[in-house]
Simulated scan of single mutants.
Amino acid sequence: MGGKGFTVDMSKPIALQVGHLGDAYQEWAYQPVLTEGSPRYFESDFLEMNTRTVWWAIPAFWLPIAFWCITMSYNMGHTLPQVVYMSFLGCLVWSFAEYCFHRFLFHMNTKSYLANTFHFLMHGCHHKFPMDGSRHVIPPTGVSVLAALLWFMYGLWFTQSTRPALYGGGVIGYVIYDLTHYYLHHGQPTNQYLKAIKKAHMSHHFKIQDKGYGITSALWDRVFGTLPTPKATKKGE
């Protein structure tokens, strides 16, 4: 049975159930469960383990890779100012990718079993369980495939010596994104900038899901007209 007649049994692993919701999945996924519990996704302990990550694993795993890449460009003859500039540019490119992933991939409409399951594991789970701190950062095992693909694509787009620094800057941007996202859910910012992006992100979760796709910055929301209105942000606090 699927669609509106199907009910997810929360007492059992849920990842392979949600696909049966059919065209009712989107409505289900965006009705948050506001508890700090952490539901089980898979029967397999191995698969379950790979859905959970502590926040500090992200910088511990990715920052050494980022700095190694940046050092490669320096060792290939680029000056320190050039390497810093390329790294900053790579970080800016990531901020655009962050916006595009969140808007067009993470919030795609799905109805089929496979698409619903994929969407849930990728992002729907976060909207359904927004206080599940064990799943607020992305496991390195899940990101590694995309990271390898991007490294290959950077080789097509950039020269051999500029690719590492641009890529390393993007990796740093990704780390900033994931840690910022975790903090927005679990921290109590006093800085005005962080307060503003927290309000926008909470509005995205609890008020209007088709606004406020930027996590670390509202830059691309301003450019593409998806910035939450002050009224929506206030109600979404």
Rank of each mutant, 00 (worst) to 15 (best):
Y182L: 06
S161F: 09
T162Q: 04
G2E: 11
L179M: 13
N50M: 15
Y154P: 02
M153F: 12
L63W: 09
T233S: 12
W55H: 04
G214Y: 03
M1I: 10
Y182K: 01
W55V: 10
T35C: 08
V54N: 15
L149A: 15
I208K: 11
H127V: 03
L149V: 15
A57P: 04
T53W: 08
V84D: 00
D221K: 05
L80N: 09
I176E: 00
L80E: 02
V83R: 01
M108R: 13
G225E: 11
S161R: 08
L194C: 13
G90W: 00
P139Q: 09
H205G: 05
S87G: 09
H201T: 01
P39H: 07
K199G: 03
Q209R: 08
T233C: 13
T216E: 04
Y182M: 05
G124A: 08
W151P: 01
N50Y: 14
F67D: 01
Y113N: 07
A15M: 02
S44A: 12
Q192W: 15
Y85L: 13
F101V: 05
E98D: 12
I70S: 01
T226D: 07
T117G: 03
H204S: 10
V18C: 02
P164G: 02
T51G: 00
K198E: 08
P39T: 00
Y167T: 01
L179I: 14
A148N: 06
I65S: 06
Q82N: 12
G214K: 00
M1A: 15
A60K: 13
E43W: 14
M49A: 15
L227H: 10
N191D: 12
H205K: 09
P139Y: 05
S134C: 08
Y193E: 07
M122T: 11
I208C: 11
T159P: 02
E27T: 15
R135W: 06
F42Y: 13
D9F: 07
K231I: 14
T110W: 02
A24R: 00
G37R: 14
F46N: 10
A15S: 08
L89Y: 03
L156G: 05
S44R: 08
G133I: 12
P164V: 06
T233Y: 03
I208G: 09
I215P: 03
F158V: 09
H119Y: 11
S161D: 09
A60G: 12
Q82Y: 07
A29Q: 05
Y183A: 10
M49Q: 14
G133Y: 07
V18T: 02
F158I: 07
K4M: 04
W55M: 11
L219S: 11
R135I: 06
T233K: 04
F42N: 06
T216S: 11
F118C: 04
G3H: 10
M202L: 15
N109S: 13
G170N: 03
Q31M: 08
Q26M: 05
G90L: 01
V223Q: 06
Y193D: 00
F106P: 04
F120H: 02
L121E: 01
R40S: 03
M86V: 05
T226P: 07
A57Y: 10
F61K: 02
Y182D: 06
K12A: 14
W94N: 01
A57C: 13
F118V: 04
L156S: 02
